[in-house]
Design a protein around this nucleic acid. Structure first.
Length: 478
RNA sequence: GCUUCUUUAGCUCAGCUGGUUAGAGCAUCUGACUGUUAAUCAGAGGGUCCAAGGUUCAAGUCCUUGAAGGAGCGCCA
């Protein structure tokens, strides 16, 4: 009796001579005899050998790229050089035909831009199936990391009534008739008649809600979609992206950095152990792609070596002030090669400065801390100098900012003073301030952009290629 | 939002200083071959040159506007 097996299982423990049933999609069919079958369980394909003499020619004629088939046959050692084992087909059924003259995926290389336009089919390519298997492994390992350390997964709301988070432009959520909205006497829209009885938006961050939970459950994290209506057109921004936001009570900035560094290294190690085939495939893809680029633009080390390097080395930790001094004395700054020359303390760092620190100066991941309070959010804890806040950003080579976090301001008076200075309405945030009124304590957390981590680990260069259906300005296809 | 580049066959691209009938590779189809690995060989089909307007005897080629896409910057994760 043939047992139904995934291609991954067959390669993991092949039983030569045993009868197998496999199902998947045809990648290529060579010489009317050799079918490369993929079922998505692994980046590898399984070779199905069809007997030309005993198989109905009409059936053979339907074995085309993209067709879904079910095959029963015997696993044998392959006579060919390209694979160790193969299935000698005894029974082959076409489940879903595919007409190659109109099927968009041809047995040839396609550009990532073209595949982005047919995102509903790009799962069927080696590259994208590898990316999404790795994406899954990253998500799973993040949950495992936190679970193993006693964190609780908090589901923060996606529709929010709070508009004071200040993390970015928000998408409004409404059921009002946009052509004829109810008005107040002064002509403004009357949101009391809206679904929730007030104006609501899609969340830009689950952090404030995570803080509420942390001040009771001690160690929590969120992992959910977030939405920013910013008109950002770059290779590392999405309007809809997934964010991981741990929050820990009785923790300071150093605890926070340790947690973030441990988590990133854990995920890197998990992927190297569990996605070796996919990472190897993605590494080869990257190498091929970079062959046509000048040496200076190529990756300094192969993908897997880069991941190992980041997992094995301490991240560099330095303060904003130290970073400014390094940048001020750097060659590109003195020679005015930077588009924005660093003149004095207090300037916001541009991506060219972050790239210089990470890729040229230290050549490893960098954690920058203690930024000027004026360029950071209201909830970050004010340092003793009254001038900087206990913030930290983790910068990765090729990606830039991957983590942004801070120790939170737990002192009610100092928090309210900051909110006043930054024009944040206190009434709106009363629920948040309650945590500081009752049983406040030191706490800290950070936000990790999930897709940026997937970008880094897969070696891809456009964030639109590491999420199944990217949402960007002017584009919400599928 | 700003800067810049691209748009020609299903895909990736070439097309010179504006000049006769629009080019290649791959893919597709037909045939041959058959233990292939980007299979091979022979042949065939396939074009609103992104759109609109303009300059010109003549526009794929030059100009204007628009659309779509890429890259960089800003905002950030």
């Amino acid at each position: 009796m043939a047992k139904l097996s995934s291609i991954k299982d067959i390669y993991q423990s092949p039983e030569i001579g045993a009868s197998y049933k496999v199902q998947g999609w045809v990648r290529t069919f060579r010489g009317n005899q050799f079918c490369a079958l993929s079922d998505g369980s692994t980046v590898k394909t399984l070779q199905i050998v069809v007997d030309r003499d005993t198989t109905d020619p009409e059936l053979i004629n339907k074995i085309k790229t993209g067709a879904a088939i079910v095959v029963t046959g015997t696993l044998v050692e392959s006579q060919g050089a390209g694979q160790s084992v193969e299935i000698q087909a005894q029974e082959l059924k076409i489940v879903g035909e595919s007409d190659p003259s109109v099927y968009p995926l041809q047995p040839k290389k396609h550009s990532l831009e073209f595949l982005r336009e047919i995102a509903h089919l790009r799962f069927r390519t080696n590259t994208f199936s590898a990316i999404f298997r790795v994406r899954h492994a990253i998500a799973f390992s993040i949950h495992k990391f936190f679970n193993d350390r006693g964190f609780f997964y908090i589901h923060s709301p996606i529709v929010t009534g709070s508009d004071a988070e200040g993390a970015g432009e928000m998408f409004q959520v409404t059921t009002l008739d946009l052509n004829n909205p109810p008005k107040n006497e002064d002509g403004s829209i009357n949101f009391k008649e809206d679904f929730f009885g007030k104006a609501t938006n899609l969340t830009v961050s689950g952090q404030l809600e995570a803080e509420l939970a942390a001040l009771a459950l001690s160690k929590v994290y969120t992992f959910g979609p977030t939405f920013r209506a910013e008109n950002s057109n770059t290779t590392r921004h999405l309007a809809e992206f997934w964010m991981i936001e741990p929050e820990v009570a009785f923790a300071n900035l150093v605890d926070n950095m340790d947690l973030a560094e441990d988590m990133l290294k854990y995920v890197l190690n998990y992927c190297m152990e569990n996605c070796a085939d996919d990472l190897q495939f993605l590494q080869n893809r990257l190498e091929n792609e970079e062959k046509s680029k000048p040496m200076a633009e190529r990756s300094p080390m192969p993908l897997i070596e880069k991941l190992k390097f980041c997992a094995d080395n301490e991240f560099v930790r330095l303060t904003y002030t130290e970073a400014i001094n390094i940048l001020k004395n750097s060659k590109p700054n003195k020679k005015k090669k930077f588009q924005f020359v660093i003149e004095e303390w207090g300037a916001d760092l541009q991506s060219e400065h972050e790239r210089y620190l990470v890729e040229k100066h230290f050549k490893k991941p960098v954690i920058l801390t203690d930024y000027p309070k004026n360029i950071k959010a209201f909830y970050m804890r004010l340092n003793e100098d009254d001038n900087t806040v206990a913030a930290m950003d983790i910068l990765f080579p090729g990606i830039g900012e991957i983590v942004g976090g801070s120790q939170r301001e737990e002192r009610l008076d100092k928090l309210e003073k900051r909110m006043t200075e930054m024009d944040i309405p206190h009434e709106e945030m009363d629920w948040f301030l309650d945590t500081r009124r009752f049983g406040t304590c030191e706490h800290a957390g950070f936000g990790l952009g999930f897709e940026r981590l997937v970008l880094f680990i897969t070696g891809m260069s456009n964030i639109r290629d590491v999420i199944p259906f990217p949402r960007t300005p002017g584009n919400a296809q599928f």
